[in-house]
C-alpha cells in the first residue's frame, strides 16, 4: 500500500531502482531483480534507490555489476514465484542453460562475481559461481589445481609441504 516514491507508476509499470557502481555508472533495473540481493532488499523495501537517488555500491565495478544484474534479471521471475513451484520443465531447462553459459567466463570475471555475490548476498549466484570454481578443482592433483588456478610454480618448501601432505592424507589420493 505505502508507496512514498513518486513516479512509481501504479498502472502496471514495474518499479525501477538505480544502482551506482564503484566507477560511478548508474544502472536502472526493476526493483524485483535488485531485490535478489539480501543486502539491497531492505533498502529497496524502504523505498530507497528510486528517483534521482540511486544506491551506491562502492565495492562493485560496472563490468561486474552489469554481469550480476544480468543474472538477477533472468532469475527474478522464478524467485518471485517463491522458487517457482509452477515453473515448467522448459523454464527450468532454460534457466539451467542460462546458468551454464553465464559462468563460462574468464577466471578474473568469475572471482569478481564471487566477491560481488558474497557482498550483495545473492544466494543463487553465490552457489552458482562457487560450484563453477569447485568444478575447476574437482578430480585434479594438487599440481594440476595450481596450474588451473594460476598459482606460480611451487617453491622447494612448498613442494616439500605438498609431498608431506600427500603422505599424511594418503586416502585423499587413492
Amino acid at each position: 500500500m505505502a508507496a512514498p516514491e513518486s513516479g512509481d507508476g501504479n498502472n502496471g509499470a514495474a518499479r525501477m531502482v538505480t544502482l551506482i557502481s564503484s566507477d560511478n555508472t548508474r544502472f536502472e533495473v526493476e526493483a524485483a531483480a535488485a531485490s535478489l540481493s539480501q543486502t539491497l532488499q531492505l533498502t529497496i523495501l524502504d523505498g530507497g534507490g528510486g528517483g534521482g537517488d540511486g544506491i551506491p555500491l562502492p565495492n562493485v565495478d560496472s563490468a561486474t555489476l552489469s554481469k550480476v544484474l544480468e543474472y538477477c534479471i533472468k532469475h527474478a521471475p522464478a524467485a518471485a514465484n517463491g522458487g517457482a513451484p509452477n515453473a515448467t520443465a522448459v523454464d527450468r531447462a532454460e534457466l539451467e542453460r542460462f546458468d551454464n553459459e553465464f559462468v563460462n567466463i574468464d577466471q578474473s570475471v568469475l572471482y569478481s562475481l564471487i566477491m560481488a555475490a558474497h557482498n550483495l548476498e545473492i544466494e543463487g549466484l553465490q552457489s552458482l559461481v562457487a560450484k563453477k570454481v569447485a568444478d575447476m578443482i574437482k578430480g585434479k592433483s594438487p599440481m594440476e589445481i595450481r596450474r588451473t588456478l594460476g598459482f606460480p610454480d611451487p617453491t622447494p618448501e612448498e613442494q616439500a609441504e605438498m609431498n608431506a601432505h600427500m603422505l599424511e592424507y594418503g586416502w585423499a589420493y587413492e
Binding site: 560450484k131 569447485a134 594438487p142 589445481i145
Partner: peptide, 14 residues
C-alpha cells in the same frame, strides 16, 4: 562443495 577427497587435497596447495 567438493567431494571429501578433493576437498582434502586442496590442503596441499598452501
Amino acid at each position: 562443495l567438493l567431494p571429501t577427497k578433493d576437498a582434502a587435497r586442496t590442503q596441499a596447495l598452501s
